[in-house]
């Protein structure tokens, strides 16, 4: 990448306190997010995707969690070191986030127009009238039908897909450089999913944003992402351009994820479930974290593997596996 990345995460480790001891929920996360790039974070529930996003936003609850190591470089600042007040200026203004649940992510007692305008009034100091005009434009941009009439409606008068559009409008209000989308389409039904994905891709172009797209759905990822990082148990286990990953899934976990997608062009008895579950963060195996569930397990997997280039693929294609990616360090 010739250009400086929009966001650079280096060795990010976030820990949570469980029974008086600190356990890492994500460990040594490294990635660069280029300008206008969409990076997808993929993995099953509990693998640390959302924790990564919340760490970037500085929204890890202070009572039980902390960023223990690593840097989050954004516009020459390390977000991990920044105090709450400065983080607040960045959040919602230059880095915005969309959440998974559109049904509960809007305040039920405030109108849509008010909630969209609020970010503008708060971050941009706009007057009420000015922010309202702007909110209307945003709602039209996210394709809310007859937006002018709906400005004074309450969230319960909107469907799930429409609410997610409103959430997107709120997130985009201040024209952020980076958008974190945490499973934005998971709670929507399939046709709506496609519309929202299309909208996100369009708006990304329009605003010139970079996007981190969190999903467990590889099908969705294939349509929207430029690059993919597969996460497992708090680590990135494989990262590659989206084409390379789908052509040559290397880590056994990636492979398993791909074969657990139901597809029309295959019979359903080849659909594979991954046995077992992600280990609890206070019971992580010492070596390769996927080893207990891995069919290719070798004695060497008792030691932790590093991310290593996958031979025969693009140099940006890295995997964390002794067996598949050599990892002979």
């Amino acid at each position: 990448m010739a250009e400086a990345p929009a966001l650079s995460v280096q060795g990010l480790t976030t820990e949570f306190r469980i029974g008086g001891q600190w356990h890492a929920a994500i460990r040594g996360i490294d990635f660069d997010l280029g300008k206008n790039e969409t990076l997808a974070l993929v993995g099953e529930s509990g693998c640390g995707k959302s924790i990564t996003a919340l760490s970037i936003m500085g929204l890890i609850p202070k009572a039980a969690g902390r960023i223990a190591a690593g840097k989050i470089l954004f516009e020459g600042q390390d977000l991990a070191q920044l105090d709450e007040e400065h983080l607040r200026e960045i959040r919602g203004d230059r880095i915005a986030m969309i959440f998974q649940e559109p049904m509960t992510s809007l305040n039920p007692v405030l109108t849509i127009g008010f909630q969209v305008a609020e970010a503008l009034r708060y971050h941009r100091g706009m007057s009420q009238a000015e922010a309202r005009t702007h909110a209307l434009e945003l709602l039209e941009q996210v394709k809310i039908p007859s937006a002018r009439q709906r400005l004074d409606d309450y969230p319960h008068q909107f469907s799930g897909g429409m609410r997610q559009r409103v959430m997107i409008a709120m997130a985009l209000a201040c024209k952020p450089q980076i958008l974190l989308a945490d499973e934005p389409t998971t709670a929507l039904d399939v046709t709506i999913q496609a519309q929202v994905l299309l909208l996100l891709a369009e708006l990304k172009q329009l605003y010139g944003m970079s996007m981190i797209f969190i999903s467990h759905n590889l099908g969705v990822v294939a349509t929207i992402a430029d690059r993919v990082a597969v996460m497992y148990a708090g680590e990135i286990v494989e990262t590659a351009a989206v084409g390379d990953l789908f052509d040559r899934p290397t880590h056994p976990y990636t492979e398993a994820l791909l074969s657990s997608i139901p597809r029309v062009d295959r019979t359903s008895d080849t659909l594979m479930a991954i046995p077992g579950q992600v280990p609890a963060i206070n019971r992580m195996p010492g070596g390769c974290r996927y080893a207990p569930r891995c069919a290719l397990r070798q004695p060497v997997c008792e030691r932790p593997p590093a991310l290593a280039p996958v031979s025969g693929s693009a140099p940006t294609h890295l995997a964390r596996c002794w067996v598949r990616a050599g990892g002979d360090r």
């Binding site: 960045i90 915005a96 959440f99 509960t104 708060y122 971050h123 997130a171």
Partner: peptide, 9 residues
């Protein structure tokens, strides 16, 4: 929605 508010800074 309160977390969303926090995310909006």
């Amino acid at each position: 929605y309160i977390e969303a508010c926090r995310a909006l800074g």
